[in-house]
Design a protein around this nucleic acid. Structure first.
Lengths: 193, 193
DNA sequence: TGTACATCAGTGAACGCGCGTTCACTGATGTAC
DNA sequence: TGTACATCAGTGAACGCGCGTTCACTGATGTAC
């Protein structure tokens, strides 16, 4: 049956949100359209009324997931600078929170195998995250050097969280050592001339 | 038909090698047992004569992939120290070489969703890679600090290559900027007191 | 404001397909005599 | 060294299952008069 424009928009949003969470938890290949529709309280047919394909939904889900992850990072940056960003991103809490965590760390190595639209979303998210980091770096540094460091710190954050998650199942202590080591090293990297 | 012990061992090896390459190229979930068997010149039945399950093969494939990736890294470390390691690992060539490249960067974010045996293999590979890096760091640094930096550098390498690969499809210039930025930053990190 | 009707979001059965795994069978290997 | 036979690596058909996607249909929405 038809549904009001308003309700339809809500349903679309629910699909994107469910997909975003499930993709982070189980990977894009690991989740089916049936799982997503069910989590959103709809049938898979409704999904195809809203999106052309699973890939199209994935691109929108990644976009939403990236933008959500930027909010607490921006807040940390504004309130406590680089140190607060590192504390937030490299905390065991954020590491263990696949469902709500950063989509870049959750999907980094999968993105390369998806459609170009997914790559574009990732690139945008990475760029925006690097800009947030860059704003926390010392003003004395040349602009070029600040951008370089911000990009490097962003990539390191992703690597540290992904690696920490990868070893967490077999060696939780090592998992914590990895994020703690990154915490120390990146503070140095951001702080020095 | 039965086959000599020697031939059987060769077949096992061929399955592991094919799986290792295909998993890196297309992800563990993205490759079927039929693809792997075919690439090794066998049928899927032969795969199940050698391995208990796809996961068991995946663990052995990851192990082999990690050990192979360590060889050129160790060589670079011995010949040119940290700088040569960074040049090798962060080169566009290594970034574009999914089939032959490092299994950690290729699978980082997927590992967290696999069996614990896969996590164990990853942890071992990460530890050995960090040890290679650690050996290139200045002897004057306290041992604790060297280990910390080596772990951080290893995580950063993985993140930089994974991120570079993720954006390569949509923005090749940005992809190169990421590995170049990491190259600079990690040299600093390794070189300073 | 009230009525007639076109629109279209959502349902659920059905599609072909490839997945991981099992198993009866084959026949060369390698062992026991 | 030669023969008889148990072993078992490898084959290929078959298993149930879930995948992404399509489509005829439903019926409330929202528009035209």
């Amino acid at each position: 049956m038809k549904v009001s424009r308003e309700k339809a928009a809500e349903h679309r949003e629910a699909l994107v949100t469910a997909a975003s969470r499930l993709f982070r938890e189980q990977g894009i290949d690991g989740v089916g359209v049936a799982d997503i529709s069910k989590a959103a309280g709809l049938t898979h047919g409704a999904l195809y009324a809203q999106f052309e394909s699973k890939q199209a939904l994935a691109a929108e889900a990644l976009s939403q997931g990236l933008r959500r992850a930027e909010v607490p990072m921006k807040k940390a940056a504004d309130e406590g600078g680089l140190g607060a960003c590192l504390d937030f991103y490299l905390s065991p809490r954020q590491r263990d929170n696949l469902a709500g965590g950063c989509a870049m760390a959750a999907s980094a190595s999968e993105i390369a195998r998806q459609d170009v639209s997914i790559s574009t979303e990732f690139a945008g998210g990475f760029e925006r995250m690097a800009a947030i980091i860059e704003a926390t770096l010392k003003r004395e540094l040349p602009q070029k050097s600040r951008r370089q460091r911000a990009i490097s710190i962003t990539a390191s954050l992703i690597g540290a969280v992904a690696a920490s998650r990868a070893v967490a199942k077999s060696d939780p202590r090592f998992a914590n050592e990895i994020i703690a080591a990154a915490r120390h090293a990146l503070e140095r990297l951001g702080g020095e001339r």
